[in-house]
């Protein structure tokens, strides 16, 4: 399959890349990992006239902790997350997800930023970032703005990104003590997109009750879903079976999946409930220091 013709640009700085986006507007697309964009171009679902390849911009491949915030640069690949000690020790929820995204070869290219910017509810990072209360830094012609991830996903394949903006950094608050997270994904076979998946992050208080919880759903509606009703319900509660089950009900109620070749909607909804229960349980175990 041969993509349509395009002009290829290799800016060496963010400002040069933004200038190209300003010049070409809707005709231009950022290329980072290219593992969503290139397949779409081969199928001619996407036919951008200008490709702005940001891979040559130096200094965007950092994973670092700064002022209580984890910062992930735009060119961090899935495989970088998989092999990061900081992620393994502080963000098992991200490590869980990274390992289940596509396959090791795709993960050597695919970026976290691209995974979010694509706006695909089937992608795994959106739900994880919703559970973690992340923010994204968008850099464009009028400077930088910081958008909470809960306001980033607008519709299917549509985000808050303006045509001249680049997602330059993901920011995640470092979890307080007694926190843990987990990502549970049901897939037909290794490397596939999720039938559905659930991300859960919890922080326990001194008595072992839930101080706060974050829950995100993958492939359960036209956009990634933050289950605010379950998050509010869990605050202050002991995470016993009845409470987890009710949180599962609230997640199921918040989900709005469609039937497709992967599974019927009824099955997906039932699985949203079960995976919510399991992800919360594992998150709580990890918050207590387990694995």
């Amino acid at each position: 399959m041969i993509p349509g013709s395009f002009e290829y640009h290799t800016p060496s700085s963010i400002s040069d890349a933004v200038a190209l986006l300003q010049q070409y507007g809707e005709e231009a697309k950022i290329l980072s990992g290219g593992h969503s964009l290139v397949p779409m171009m081969k199928l001619r679902i996407a036919e951008p006239e200008h490709i702005v390849d940001i891979n040559g911009i130096a200094g965007l491949d950092y994973i670092k902790e700064e002022g209580g915030v984890l910062k992930i640069g735009a060119l961090v690949r899935e495989s970088d997350l998989e092999h990061s000690d900081l992620i393994a020790s502080k963000f098992p929820i991200i490590a869980d997800a990274a390992k289940l995204i596509a396959d090791p070869l795709v993960r050597n290219r695919a970026t976290v930023a691209g995974n979010l910017a694509h706006g695909d509810p089937a992608n795994d990072h959106p739900a994880v970032m919703l559970a973690l209360g992340a923010e994204v830094v968008l850099t464009g012609g009028s400077g930088e703005r910081v958008v909470p991830i809960s306001e980033f996903f607008v519709d299917l394949l549509e985000t808050a990104l303006k045509p001249d903006e680049i997602l330059t950094e993901v920011r995640i608050p470092m979890p307080p003590a007694n926190s843990g997270g987990a990502y549970f994904k049901i897939e037909r076979r290794v490397g596939d997109f999720a039938i559905i998946a659930v991300a859960a992050q919890v922080t326990l208080d001194a008595s072992g009750n839930c101080a706060s919880a974050g829950i995100g759903l993958t492939n359960s509606g036209p956009t990634p879903i933050k289950v605010t009703a379950a998050e509010a319900y869990l605050a202050g509660k002991a995470l016993d079976d009845a409470t987890l089950s009710e949180a599962g009900n609230l997640a199921e109620a918040a989900s709005d999946p469609t039937s497709d070749t992967r599974a019927p909607a009824e099955y997906k909804k039932a699985m949203v409930k079960q995976m919510t229960i399991r992800a919360l349980r594992r998150a709580a175990e990890r918050a207590k220091g387990g694995n």
């Binding site: 290829y8 290219g34 891979n55 396959d103 070869l105 795709v106 490397g191």
Partner: peptide, 24 residues
Amino acid sequence: TSCGACTIMLDGLPVKSCTLFAVQ
């Protein structure tokens, strides 16, 4: 991008060469 028959090493990392442009 599914089968890996096109796998090569690019700067030391295995990748699927059917999903990269030569210019990259």
